[in-house]
């Protein structure tokens, strides 16, 4: 069974590896390692460990390809960033629960559809009255 996706900010090397994984769509640790040249160059074992960690975070699925693992991203970059943003947003709202947040609409408050319809009607009435 594939691990559940963990939406948390990626470390520098994790982000670099994911960049390559997204660009290749399917890759082994060796292929990723070969892509990382110059200042981004890392030891093969480091890349292998990082890809294993990304697999455990649910971001890379893998299957055997001879002696090696072949990895593919489980989410597109956009899907990952959206999921990460949603998680971070929840964290921000829960962290600021005690300290308050200057937000447009109180995130803790819930309103119902009926009230929103009433308020929309109120705004509309006001607009017509002004004419």
């Amino acid at each position: 069974m594939e691990p559940k996706v963990v939406f948390e900010p990626l470390g520098e090397l994790e982000a670099t590896v994911m960049e390559v994984a997204w660009s290749l769509s399917s890759s082994t640790a060796r292929e990723v390692c070969d892509r990382l040249t110059g200042p981004r160059e890392r030891a093969y074992t480091t890349i292998m460990t990082t890809m294993d960690r990304l697999h455990r975070k649910g971001l890379l699925a893998r299957e055997k390809d001879g002696q090696a693992w072949r990895y593919r991203p489980t989410l597109s970059r956009v899907e990952f960033e959206r999921g990460l943003a949603d998680g971070l947003a929840d964290e921000i709202l829960s962290a600021h629960g005690a300290t308050g947040l200057a937000a447009l609409v109180d995130a803790a408050a819930r309103v119902d559809e009926e009230l929103l319809d009433q308020l929309t009607a109120l705004i509309e009435r006001h607009r017509k009255d002004k004419r």
Binding site: A109, R110, L119
Partner: peptide, 25 residues
């Protein structure tokens, strides 16, 4: 006013319609 209502409506759409007073709004 429209922005407030629209933002609250968007919030409602992701919050499973939990009801609570919207007195402040």
């Amino acid at each position: 006013a429209r922005a407030l209502v629209a933002a609250a409506r968007l919030q409602l759409s992701v919050a499973n319609g939990l009801s609570l007073t919207g007195r402040t709004l």
